[in-house]
């Protein structure tokens, strides 16, 4: 058994890179949001700085992308808020099993988000545009949802794998 795991473990660096790329994007989105908001304020008082009508919608869309992408990162860090009050009364094995159940459920949710999110983004994209930018399809407003689904699947698979590995590796140890 461990051999299989050793082979699969070689993919870990790829995950590290994926994490770094997504993190980079999140930081960038945060910076863009701050800069656009600041620009809109400055533009009200300084004539050569633009105060565009699209600032609000763009800022919100960037935030949506950041929200969902960073949430996928939190899966890898196992940082999402959950109820852990009864953990100390539960056997370790039990917790591991519960973790695996919830991981599968989140994986399923991620797949739903990809499928319905994509469907919805494409549909709305074909039917509407941003209010402040008639040229920009509403697709981009809803694309964060399927994108989040993809990022969640990627990081959830790794987490799930680690949990399952946890079961087997421990059993081997006995």
């Amino acid at each position: 058994m461990p051999n299989i795991f050793n082979t699969i473990d070689r993919i870990k660096p790829a995950y590290d890179v994926a994490y770094k790329i997504v993190l980079f994007l999140c930081k960038l989105l945060l910076i863009v949001d701050i800069l656009i908001t600041t620009m809109a304020v400055a533009g009200r008082y300084i004539s050569f700085i633009p105060d565009p009508a699209w600032s609000e919608e763009v800022v919100l869309t960037c935030m949506a992308y950041m929200a969902v992408l960073s949430a996928a990162l939190a899966i890898r860090r196992n940082a999402h808020i959950r109820m852990t009050a009864f953990d100390r009364y539960l056997p370790k094995k039990m917790i591991l099993v519960l973790d695996i159940i919830s991981d599968f459920a989140v994986l399923a949710l991620a797949v739903v988000m990809i499928v319905v999110g994509w469907k919805y983004a494409v549909l709305l994209g074909s039917r509407g545009s941003y209010v402040s930018m008639p040229g920009l399809s509403r697709f981009w407003m809803y694309f964060p949802v399927p994108l989040a689904g993809i990022a969640m699947v990627i990081f959830e698979i790794e987490t799930l794998y680690n949990h399952i590995k946890g079961i087997f590796v421990k059993e081997e140890d006995k």
Binding site: L23, K27, L30, M63, A64, A67, R77
Partner: peptide, 20 residues
């Protein structure tokens, strides 16, 4: 500053998705 932004993103990663 760039490093510190990671702390922000970490915190936001938990909060924003809950609101969504």
């Amino acid at each position: 500053v760039w490093r510190v932004l990671e702390v922000c993103v970490d915190t936001l990663s938990i909060v924003l998705i809950l609101i969504a």
